[in-house]
């Protein structure tokens, strides 16, 4: 579905991504991890064609995205950004309906409204429908943004640290939502900082450092002490959680009195 080949991206002189190759098939949940400044967000932006690569190609179902119009891309790829702030008093319903923008010519059809309603129900925000977007909590707002992205009915959903500013309950609820979308065939690519959540939710993890992909594979293959040490410069311990049957990563911390 998604094929990225030999991708190079630079801001002026400074090369941010180097020779990135990545492919994704239907239903995959891919986590992108790496330290700050390693190029994670840049990679997402390049997949939406908001940033143009210096070389390399990104293909969606065999079509190069550079050849696609912006609304064609938006039909295929939806984005949930890191921090969203909307200062205008739109209702939740208005904002979610904006997800239909790539399909709407002049005004929204009954089908557009049905899809928006459906997604609001799936993300548990239907009761907020008439609420103003400026009056929502962080967790509610993020759910609205996800509902809007799903309303685009994309093949690929990109998330940039979708839960980093949310409490633990909201983190799990939102990731469950996203996971559900991926099991129904959507490709999900999420930039994540919480390695444990990444290990739990992702089928595949990509580890970036200084713009290079240093490891790709299952959580078990990527989240090894040596990989993490190289990328984050931090010693970790990897454990197995029997209950969830996934990995559990702990940084090895010095006793406090030795800092």
């Amino acid at each position: 579905m998604l094929k990225i080949k030999d991708l190079n991206v630079s801001y002026g002189q400074h090369q941010v991504l180097e020779k990135i190759g990545l492919s994704a098939v239907k239903g995959e949940f891919i986590g992108i991890i790496g330290p700050n400044g390693s190029g994670k967000t840049t990679l997402l932006k390049t997949i939406t064609n908001v940033l143009k690569p210096t070389s390399g190609t990104i293909m969606i179902d065999g079509t190069n995205i550079e050849k696609m119009k912006s609304n064609e891309i938006a039909k295929n790829v939806a984005v949930v950004s890191q921090v969203v702030s909307i200062n205008f008093e739109f209702t939740v319903k208005d904002i979610v309906l904006m997800g239909r923008n790539p399909y709407i010519k002049s005004s929204e059809s009954v089908e557009d409204i049905n899809i928006a309603n459906d997604m609001m129900k799936k993300t548990n925000i239907h009761f907020l429908k008439k609420r103003l977007i400026t009056r929502l909590s962080g967790g509610e707002l993020q759910r609205v943004i996800i509902a809007r992205a799903l309303t685009q009915t994309p093949k690929i959903l990109l998330l940039d640290e979708p839960t980093s500013h949310l409490d633990i309950t909201n983190q799990i609820e939102i990731l469950n939502l996203v996971k559900k979308a991926s099991t129904k065939g959507m490709v999900v690519i999420a930039v994540m900082h919480d390695l444990n959540l990444a290990a739990y939710y992702c089928n595949k993890i990509c580890l970036l450092r200084d713009g290079c992909l240093i490891s790709t594979g299952t959580p078990r293959q990527v989240l090894t002490p040596s990989n993490i040490e190289v990328a984050f410069n931090l010693p970790i311990e990897v454990m197995h959680n029997n209950r969830t049957n996934s990995l559990y990563v702990m940084p090895i911390l010095e006793p406090l009195n030795e800092i």
Binding site: V50, A74, V79, I86, D94, G99, N101, S107, Q152
Partner: peptide, 23 residues
């Protein structure tokens, strides 16, 4: 008036509007 809807989407910010398919 024909661009009312697009201007609405633009209020979300240029980058967001681009993600939603606005040129």
């Amino acid at each position: 008036y024909r661009y009312s809807w697009k201007l609405n989407v633009m209020l979300l910010g240029e980058e967001e509007a681009q993600y939603l398919g606005v040129n």
